[in-house]
Design a protein around this nucleic acid. Sequence first.
DNA 1: AAACAGGCCTAAA
DNA 2: TTTAGGCCTGTT
Length: 277
Amino acid sequence: MHFIYGQNQTEIRDADFDPVKTFECGQCFRWNADADGVYTGVFGKHAARVWVESDSVFISSGREEFETVWMDYFDLTRDYSKVREAVSIDDYMRRASEYGRGIRLLRQDKWEVVCSFIISQCNNIPRIKKIIEKMCESFGEAFEFNGKTLYTFPSADKIAALEPEDLVVLRCGYRAPYIINAARAIADGSLNLEALSEMDCNAALKELGKMSGIGVKVANCIVLFGFQMFCAFPVDVWMKRALAEHYGKDFNPSSVFGEYAGFAQQYMFYYARSGEK
DNA sequence: AAACAGGCCTAAA
DNA sequence: TTTAGGCCTGTT
């Protein structure tokens, strides 16, 4: 992989980065494609467009922002061919990881991940995205990007000052108090995401599990997508089906995949959802 | 119309 | 420790 810097864009050659798979594999909710397949997304106070052109991935960002923000966000320093090799423990995982070639696990904002996956419970992707966008429009900060108005993800402090009734506009139902509760814990310091992300995986999972509205599955998503803890292995209904079919009931991901369990989960999940066997 | 969707909580065995 | 039912809402 190497980078070619322009004034307002960066070209990534030999990227091992497929934007469609990366944005549609279920890890994130705020990247949306326009009619030409160009994705626009927001991370913190930054926004970018991402597209593919003649075998290269392009990001609408000059060198400085690319090197300080997007390089890290897109996990571009990791060698994913080694990851795929490590998780290819058998024929099934070889197919799954090949199918998911180009997926990169994003280094997302921790609070946004907490909030997003609380919302995700017993919910479908279109609705999750709708709720999150409404939340950003209602409580985030507006800014202009490429002729469009975009919104930042609202801070925990901002949400902490609200009451559950204030979230009625989001149509997120019973998840509203979970969101407020998590925001307040972060705002008052009783839940320190930075500190959690420095702990070992099991300790972080345990702490997150104390929060109301965060169970085993959501906690695993948070440490994987928010903290880059790859021992995590979120198991939802799709994963249950895939595991039952290929590995049986008492399956221990960390003993099988070790420090690559989180990547293995993502390949398996994406493959299972595709309907391939 | 009734069930279901990328779970979690609580009550009850 | 495991299991059933309810939960907001939107979609089929």
